[in-house]
């Protein structure tokens, strides 16, 4: 191609004219993807709203089974991780690769803490037979509290919402590990940090969705 000029930096793919165009495209693409994610979760929220409108007493009753304390801790953990991922991007912009890696590492750890807490919450419920769908088999003491013919549907919604969200956390961890490794190989600089930026965007959304899930599931009365 005649137009290929000498200052086409290595990180710019052949079909982009320059670094800016590539960066803008990646960012716009990510935003479009996030819109996607919002509509995807929107379906679940919609199901939640409808069933809650039908069975308000069930929702308030069943929500007591969720541990608001640990839910709250997880909220703080995720908000903290949003902060550290933002700091990671800032480090990249200032060409501080060490800071980038440290901040990423903290973010990854916080994400893992979130999942561990979530695991223990699930574990606790499953222990009492509070399981989704056909595995619904609460122990008699729980059955006495959850005395509602549609109680299983609340927990189906709970498991679907938090489960799919947890999957997003897992994907986020994978992405950040990948970026951590690449940063170690010196792939990023203030000239090029597109993957850091767009992973950060993704992570903020994962955080944001949890901020809606937490009050809707744990804090209703």
């Amino acid at each position: 191609m005649a137009n290929h000029s000498a200052n086409h930096p290595a990180h710019v793919q052949h079909h982009f004219v320059d670094s800016d165009q590539q960066f803008d495209s990646a960012k716009l693409g990510m935003w479009v993807f996030l819109v996607n994610e919002i509509l995807f979760f929107g379906g679940l929220f919609c199901a939640y709203i409808i069933f809650r409108a039908w069975y308000p007493e069930l929702f308030t009753q069943a929500a007591l089974e969720l541990n608001a304390f640990w839910g709250g801790v997880n909220t703080v953990v995720l908000i903290g991780s949003s902060l550290t991922v933002a700091m990671a991007i800032r480090s990249a912009q200032r060409n501080e690769i060490k800071g980038l890696r440290i901040n990423l590492m903290i973010t990854i750890l916080l994400a893992c803490v979130f999942l561990v807490i979530k695991y223990f919450e699930y574990e606790h419920k499953l222990h009492y037979g509070i399981a989704p769908g056909s595995f619904w088999d609460p122990t008699p003491e729980k059955l006495a509290i959850l005395d509602h013919p549609k109680a299983n549907i609340f927990f189906s919604i709970y498991y679907m919402m938090t489960g799919i969200h947890g999957l997003h956390v897992l994907v986020g961890i994978g992405l950040m590990i990948w970026i951590y490794i690449r940063a170690g190989k010196g792939h990023f600089s203030s000239e090029y940090y597109t993957p850091v930026e767009i992973t950060g965007l993704y992570w903020h959304l994962v955080d944001l969705i949890w901020i809606f899930l937490f009050p809707l599931l744990y804090l209703i009365e």
Binding site: L39, P132, F135, K150, I153
Partner: peptide
């Protein structure tokens, strides 16, 4: 994405009767 979540819920309806 709305189809995606719908059809995923439908699959779970079949896999584990989420109701």
């Amino acid at each position: 994405p709305v189809l995606a979540i719908t059809i995923l819920l439908l699959a779970f309806e079949n896999i584990m009767d989420i109701g």
